[in-house]
Each structure stands twice: as C-alpha cells, then as structure tokens.
Simulated scan of single mutants.
Amino acid sequence: MPYFAKYKTKDGYKWLFQMPTTVDPLSGKKKRTSFRGYETKREAQKAAQMIKEQLDKGTYGNDKITYREAYASWWDIHQRTLKPSTRDKSEDVFRSRILPHFDKLRIKDIDRDYCQAVVDKWREELTESTAKDYKGHASQVFKYAMSRDWIFKNPMQFAVVEKKDENTLADDDSENENFWDSEQFLEFQDTASKEMEYQDYVMFYVMGSSGLRKGEMLTLKWDDIDFENKIINVRRTLYFKNKKDILQKTKTGASLRSAPMTNDEIEVLNKWRTLQKERFLKLGIQYKKVVYVVCRDNLRPLRLAHPNEKLNKFLKHHPDLPSITVHGFRHTFASALYEAGVSVKTAQKFLGHTRMETTMNIYTHVAKTIKVSEADKYENHMKMLKQNR
C-alpha cells in the first residue's frame, strides 16, 4: 500500500507518497520509491494509482531497468535448467567477466558500439573461443530483455569476435599438440606399468584406450563395464563443490554412450580387479562394497586433481615424451581412431561429441601432424640415399 505524507517546502506544503516499485536483485527485497511535488493529496493518490496499474501490467520503469536487474531476473529462471558444475561456471563468468562491464548501465542505453568495445577487450585478453563464449553468455540476457519488451533489439548480436591470422593459428597448433601417436602411447604404457601405482596406470590406460573424460573415468563403476561385448557404458561424471563429491549425468546427451574396449584393455582391467580385491581385503573391506574401478581407500572417487598430479610427476621424469594434459589421453584415443581409418561419424559416437565439427577439428589436427611426420621420414630417407651414394 502507498504511504502518503505532507511535507513543507520554501514555497509552502506539498504531498508525497512512497510505494514498492522494484526488487533488489541482490537481496530479493522490495525497494520503496518516493514520489514528491504533488499539490494535493488527491493528486498524489491519482499518481499512485497510475503507477500501481503500470506495476500490475509489468510496464512500470522499463526505461530504467539495468543490465544487472535484467540478469538477475533471467538468471533466476535459467539456473534451474543447468547442472551444478555448469551453473557455477556460468555464474562465475557473469560475476568476473560480464557484469563489471554492464552492471548498472540501463539496458536500453547499451548499444552496438559499446558491446563491440567489450568484445574487443575480451579478445585482447582471451582466446577466440572464450571471447565467443562470453559474448554468447552476455547475449542471453539481452534476448531475455527482448522477450520482456524491455528492449527491441539485441545489441550484442552484431558484435564481431576478431579472428587470428591463419599463420598464427597454424603456429599455435604445432606448438600445442595435446596428444600422443600410437607409438608414444605404447611407450607410455611400457614405462608407466612399471613405475606408477597400478591403479593410476589403469586410469590413464583406459582414458587413452577408450577416450573417457577425466570425470567419466573417476566415476566409472565395475557395473558399467560389459566385458563380454567389450563395451564401457559411460553414464556419469564427477564434480567437486565445497569439498563434496557430486556425481551428475555426463556432459551432454551425446556423452551418454558406449565406448569400445580392446582385448588388451580387458586384460589390464581384469588384472587390476584381482589386485584391487587383494588391496581391500588387506584393509579389512569386503570387496562387494567396492563400486568404482579406481577409488580411494574409503571407497570414494579419487579427487579431480589426482590424475593431473600423477601425470605431471611422470612427465617430469620422462622429458623424452611430449608433454600432454590429462585431457590429451582422450585426444590420443581420437588419434588412434584416425590412424586406424575409423570414420568421423563413428569417432563422434565413440567420443560422445554433440557436434561432428568437434570431432572433425581433432581429426584435422591429427592429420596435419601425421603428414608432417611422414614428410620428415621421407626427407630423412632421401638424406640417407645421398649419403650412401
């Protein structure tokens, strides 16, 4: 209900009223707005009634809505559709990268030029794909504002993310080969099987042989493995928040898949199951309680940082092997598929990619590397012929 009051000015008495008109996007509490300067109480009451009608229709203050207010309204709905890991990541992007640029600006005043300047700023500091990702995030708020009739055009739609020079891209690719070819992966297997704890060796072996993501590997259960049909059923992934293990469905619908296994992989897993059983019997734990293929002594999944720590330690002692990340084992699997002549469509299914373009990008990168390798072999062969003449 509006609150009416009479107040004194140098020109005599006037009337004001206060009423809730907006909601604070941070606290969620209603904010009261004061309206002053009315000659009579009746005039103030009439104005209050008009504002109430606008509030009821949802048309009040459209020209005053800030980007943050639009974001808060959109986020309240959008976050319900996201998985916990995606929700936290998206919220962090807005908090650290997007809101600092738009925050208290009235959304109707934000134009194409300003959006382009923000995108250019992101592009100076970030990769092309990350800048595009931030642009997409920011654009969703503008689209929501359009659906609420707060604005009529999306100014972010017209912003362009600058592409790097093609030669620069080629150089970057050659310097950041995040996979091993089949010979290098075999070399890793020979060494790691002797130097690593067998559980860690199995973890990397399966990721490199079946293309599992790190979170998928750490939540892989023995029941997910179909030894008879040589298939790993990928069903879930791991997410850590507030020191708690949170299991959730795989990254996308396509990620819910059946990954192939080799006979050698089955042999390694069977050996590990025997060793794992012995390990937990020594700890006084009944093996039927063991669910995960790799896990801690308390039967919980390994930490997400565990594979990174073990791989970094291994590579530090083996500088002869090219340095790759944990995710590089997944690309190593893709590399093996390419070398074996597996079609892009089949590789897409094995890897659980939603878009074929993602698989094509990996295949193209692998193809470039292999061509360079074969060219080097040819050059060395010609040198040997010259030396023997």
Rank of each mutant, 00 (worst) to 15 (best):
T346W: 05
N242S: 02
M1D: 10
D264T: 11
M156H: 00
I362T: 04
L304R: 11
M156K: 04
K31R: 12
T59R: 03
I232K: 00
K41Q: 15
E197Q: 12
H365A: 01
D113E: 04
H353S: 12
A340D: 04
S27L: 02
G253W: 00
A340L: 07
K6R: 15
D172L: 10
A131C: 04
L321V: 02
Q184A: 04
E267S: 15
I266H: 02
A347C: 12
F227D: 13
T81V: 07
M156V: 01
P155M: 03
K345A: 15
K132H: 06
D320A: 11
V294C: 15
L26R: 10
P319I: 02
M19D: 08
K89M: 05
G284Q: 01
A138Y: 09
H317T: 14
D165P: 06
I98R: 02
S209Y: 10
T358D: 08
F280P: 00
Y38L: 06
T250S: 02
Y287P: 09
D226L: 08
F333R: 00
S90R: 07
R300E: 14
D11W: 12
A336R: 05
P319R: 13
K104N: 14
Q248A: 06
R80N: 14
Q54R: 05
I232E: 11
T21D: 10
T22D: 12
F333M: 04
I225C: 07
R389Q: 14
T274Q: 02
T81I: 09
K383G: 08
N308M: 06
R235F: 07
K14Q: 15
S373P: 02
T22K: 09
K289Y: 14
K288T: 14
D320Y: 07
H331W: 01
F152H: 08
A72E: 09
T130F: 05
E195T: 15
K313N: 09
T237L: 03
V326Q: 03
A138W: 10
Y363W: 01
V293I: 11
